[in-house]
Computed example of a mutant assay.
Amino acid sequence: MRNLYEIIQSCKDGNEEDVIFILNKFDPLINKYSRLLEYEDTKQELSLTLIKVLQRIRIDKGNFREDKYIISYIKKSIINRYIALLKQLSKVSRYESEADINLIYADNDEDVLEMCDLLKDLTEIERKVIILKYMYMMKDSEIAILNNISRQVVNQAKNRAISKLRLYFKKSLNIVDK
């Protein structure tokens, strides 16, 4: 039986059967991290990472003649790619949740347009805070964590936004302060 060193050397030389053998050997690890991400292309992404690792790995250096070091290197490479994908997906989900106006439950299109008009006068952070707080019913601390800001910044943005919205409603209803 050949060891991993010989199999990876064969993969570097272009032997497709050995590449498939390695993919099958690390399939449980790839499945584990693809399930954790719950993203449709994760398994393919991690499999591609493994194939790239097979081409990049410098088996002629260090202790790579022993299987345990090769396995550890491949495992760390897959975990690092998982972490990078996780960070990338968290950024995407943060931007998707900013102002998804389609989630506003309105009786008609005019209500949606009026809500859009109200929100466009707010700054980006004020808009995020109002949407997350009142549409998604999130707590200030949750909003702070999601946007990498302090709770105090969330509270200040919320108060500024509410003040702007009050002023807007006063103007639209022709209410004058005494």
Results as ranks from 00 to 15, higher is better:
residue 1 M to Y: 03
residue 1 M to K: 10
residue 5 Y to G: 04
residue 6 E to C: 06
residue 8 I to M: 06
residue 9 Q to F: 07
residue 16 E to S: 14
residue 17 E to M: 12
residue 17 E to R: 11
residue 19 V to Q: 04
residue 21 F to L: 15
residue 27 D to P: 01
residue 30 I to V: 14
residue 36 L to E: 06
residue 36 L to Q: 11
residue 37 L to C: 03
residue 38 E to C: 12
residue 40 E to N: 11
residue 42 T to W: 04
residue 42 T to R: 06
residue 45 E to Q: 12
residue 47 S to E: 12
residue 51 I to N: 01
residue 53 V to G: 08
residue 56 R to Q: 14
residue 57 I to C: 09
residue 57 I to M: 09
residue 63 N to H: 15
residue 64 F to N: 01
residue 71 I to Q: 00
residue 72 S to Y: 08
residue 76 K to Q: 07
residue 81 R to N: 15
residue 82 Y to T: 12
residue 82 Y to P: 04
residue 83 I to V: 13
residue 85 L to I: 06
residue 97 S to L: 14
residue 98 E to C: 08
residue 100 D to Q: 07
residue 100 D to E: 13
residue 100 D to S: 13
residue 101 I to R: 00
residue 102 N to G: 11
residue 105 Y to S: 13
residue 105 Y to K: 14
residue 108 N to L: 03
residue 108 N to E: 03
residue 113 L to D: 15
residue 115 M to T: 12
residue 119 L to E: 06
residue 120 K to M: 12
residue 121 D to Y: 01
residue 124 E to K: 11
residue 124 E to H: 09
residue 124 E to F: 09
residue 129 V to E: 07
residue 133 K to M: 05
residue 134 Y to K: 08
residue 134 Y to N: 13
residue 137 M to D: 13
residue 145 I to F: 03
residue 146 L to V: 02
residue 146 L to S: 08
residue 147 N to D: 05
residue 148 N to T: 08
residue 149 I to G: 02
residue 149 I to R: 05
residue 150 S to G: 09
residue 154 V to T: 08
residue 156 Q to D: 05
residue 157 A to F: 05
residue 160 R to C: 03
residue 161 A to R: 01
residue 162 I to V: 15
residue 163 S to L: 09
residue 165 L to M: 15
residue 166 R to Q: 11
residue 167 L to S: 15
residue 167 L to G: 09
residue 168 Y to S: 11
residue 171 K to R: 00
residue 174 N to S: 15
residue 175 I to K: 06
residue 176 V to S: 10
residue 176 V to M: 07
residue 178 K to E: 02
